[in-house]
Design a protein around this nucleic acid. Structure first.
Lengths: 139, 139
DNA sequence: AAACTACTTTACGTTTACGTAAACTTTATC
DNA sequence: GATAAAGTTTACGTAAACGTAAAGTAGTTT
C-alpha cells in the first residue's frame, strides 16, 4: 500500500520549487535520508512527504532543527515505549498552542487589513470627488 | 484622541518580551523612529503599535525588511496620491493570498496532528492492555 | 570519442537578526 | 558627591539557511 515510486533530486526540486542545494542541505542536516544508487540520491515517497512537511514548517515559522526534532521524535514514537508516546503527546500540544497563536495573529492581521483597505477606498473616493469638482469648475 | 503616553525602552522590552538590543536594532533598520530626550529614546503609542506589528509579522514569517516595506508604504499612502493608494491595495491583496496559504498550512497541520495524536493514544491503549494481561498471568 | 546533461562533493561566501562585551553618559537615590 | 541603575554608542561575533563556484563522475546522445 505504501507507494513505491521514486524521485530524482531535480524532480523534487521542480515540483516544490526549491533548489537542489536546499534539498542536499536538508539531507546534510538529517531531515531527509534518500537511498543511493552509486552516488546519486533516490528519493522515496516518504522522503517526498517529509520535504513537503519541511517546507510547510518553514512557511509556518519553524526552523529546520525544530522540524528535525519532530521527525526524530516521530520515528522514536513508532517504536513506542510509553515515555516516548507521552512526550510526543506533549509536543503535539505545544504545537497546537503555537497554531492557536498563529490563527490569532492571522485574524488580527485580517481585521487590520480590512480597515486599511477601507481607508484606501475612502481616500480614492475623495480623490474622485475633487476631480469631478475641478472638472465642473473649469468648464 | 491619539494616546499621548510614552514608553521607555525597557518598558516595551518587558511588555513584549524582546531585548532592548532588538528594539534598538529595529530602530537602526528604520522600523521604529522614537523621539529623543537628549540621548534616551522616547517611544510613543504609535511606536508601540509598530513594535507589536513587527513581532506579529515575525511570528507570521515576515522578514524585518518586508515589514519595513509595509510601514513605509503605509506612510506614503497617508499622503495619498492615487498611484500610491492603488499600489497599497495591490499589496494588501498579496498579503491576503499569503494569509490564505497560511490558513491552509495550519488546517493541514491540524489534521495531521489529529491523526498523529490518535495513533499515540491507540499505542498507549495497546500498552495498557498488555500490562493488564501480564499482571493477570503472573497472579 | 566528443560533447552534453544531470548529478556529485568540497568549501568558502552571504544575509538576517540579533548576542555580547566594552566603555561612556545621564538620572535617580542614598 | 558617591554609587548604583538605566540608558547609550561602537563594534566584533554568531547561528541558520542557504548561494555560488570549482572540479569531478556517470550515463546518454550524436
Amino acid at each position: 500500500m505504501a507507494e513505491k515510486r521514486t524521485f530524482s533530486i531535480s524532480e523534487l526540486s521542480q515540483e516544490f520549487d526549491v533548489t537542489t542545494r536546499s534539498i542536499r542541505f536538508y539531507e546534510d542536516q538529517g531531515l531527509l535520508k534518500p537511498a543511493r544508487r552509486g552516488q546519486t540520491r533516490i528519493f522515496s515517497s516518504k522522503d517526498r512527504v517529509r520535504l513537503k512537511l519541511i517546507l510547510r514548517g518553514k512557511r509556518m515559522g519553524f526552523s529546520l532543527s525544530e522540524t528535525k526534532e519532530l521527525f526524530d521524535l516521530w520515528d522514536e514514537t513508532l517504536s513506542g515505549n510509553e515515555k516516548q508516546l507521552l512526550k510526543m503527546l506533549e509536543i503535539l500540544n505545544n504545537r497546537r498552542a503555537h497554531l492557536e497563536q498563529q490563527k490569532n495573529d492571522i485574524a488580527m492581521a485580517e481585521m487590520e487589513m480590512d480597515t486599511a483597505e477601507a481607508r484606501c477606498r475612502e481616500a480614492l473616493a475623495e480623490l474622485q470627488k475633487t476631480k469631478e469638482q475641478s472638472l465642473a469648475t473649469n468648464k
